[in-house]
Design a protein around this nucleic acid. Structure first.
Lengths: 165, 165
DNA sequence: GTAGGTCTTCGAGCGCACTCGAAGCCAGGG
DNA sequence: CCCTGGCTTCGAGTGCGCTCGAAGACCTAC
């Protein structure tokens, strides 16, 4: 019990590729690596981007991007004037973080993961374990949602009949 | 997932939903144990239950049940001593609320729905609209989750290779 | 009669994830 | 030269959904 649908908006940008590949009924075809790579990045990006551009691309507000950086979730380079400059790798990190957040991973866990990446390749076991554990949580959540959706559908179908609750 | 809605009362439907959902994948973290209890109602229920029994059956804590009542989400009868007594209908309401919450509906919307039910049958149009809107939100959330899962899976599969983020 | 457990109310506190606002710096245009 | 507009920092505020604790009522067992 703790699912909020309210911040969908970050997903919207990232999801455009998926939507173009989605079937009419809203079901999503199973994603393979190619599709994931396809939604990764447009090719005509400048070398570095400002915070507003990243915000625009990812759907994460500039405020939130700064917040992420403040809590140590994200390191970003600066230009001579002290402004944040996101290169391609940084943008990729933002997008990956967004996916993790979107899949319901708590910020603390995302931070942990990022720390492990920073720490070097010898942490790959723990990283993988973290991802696998999270995967199980996501699958479980998916299952809950599908069940709940079935209940809602049942209720919808029951309209016209009596509906005590 | 959606099909053949029998004209039985919700509890039996919930059980079948659980079974079909549980058959899909083996893993279930602790939160899902509570979910299971929420769905699998024993048939030999007493006429009325105390708050602890409802908490036990639904996985909602007594504290939260009282909270729900405080905010007007749930009306519950009392016995002579002032204790809450949940009859079968009340239990059904608790379970339905649980499903709505689980599907990510904000408490405010659940409250609105319950108010509409209370208001009488002439509100069924608005109720249905609310449910349909919520259904769309759930489907959208499901799609996000599936996409995010694919990204995570992609990352998992990429382990052993280089993983920049 | 008293100890223990379960219930009651009420209000306050917490954790998470933002979200906002104020005050100031800095580059470019008119 | 100054104005505008976007960036910076920092701290504080917001909203949601619980979650907890204190103080007291009441039933049951011993």
């Amino acid at each position: 019990m703790t699912t909020t649908l309210e911040h969908h908006h970050p997903a919207s940008r990232l999801r455009t590729v998926l939507e173009s590949a989605a079937a009419e009924d809203g079901t999503l075809p199973p994603l393979d690596g190619e599709l994931v790579r396809a939604m990764a990045l447009p090719d005509d990006l400048p070398e570095t981007l400002g915070i507003a551009e990243v915000a625009d691309l990812t759907g994460i507000t500039a405020h939130t991007l700064r917040y992420y950086e403040r809590i140590g979730l994200l390191a970003v380079a600066r230009d001579a004037a002290g402004r944040r400059t996101y290169d391609r790798a940084a943008l990729g990190r933002v997008m990956f973080i967004t996916w993790l957040r979107l899949s319901g991973m708590p910020i603390a866990s995302v931070t942990r993961y990022i720390e492990l990446v920073q720490a070097g390749p010898h942490t790959s076991d723990e990283r993988l374990a973290l991802l696998l554990a999270h995967r199980a949580a996501v699958v479980s959540h998916l299952r809950d949602l599908q069940a709940a959706l079935a209940v809602v559908d049942y209720k919808i179908a029951a309209y016209g009949g009596t509906c005590g609750s």
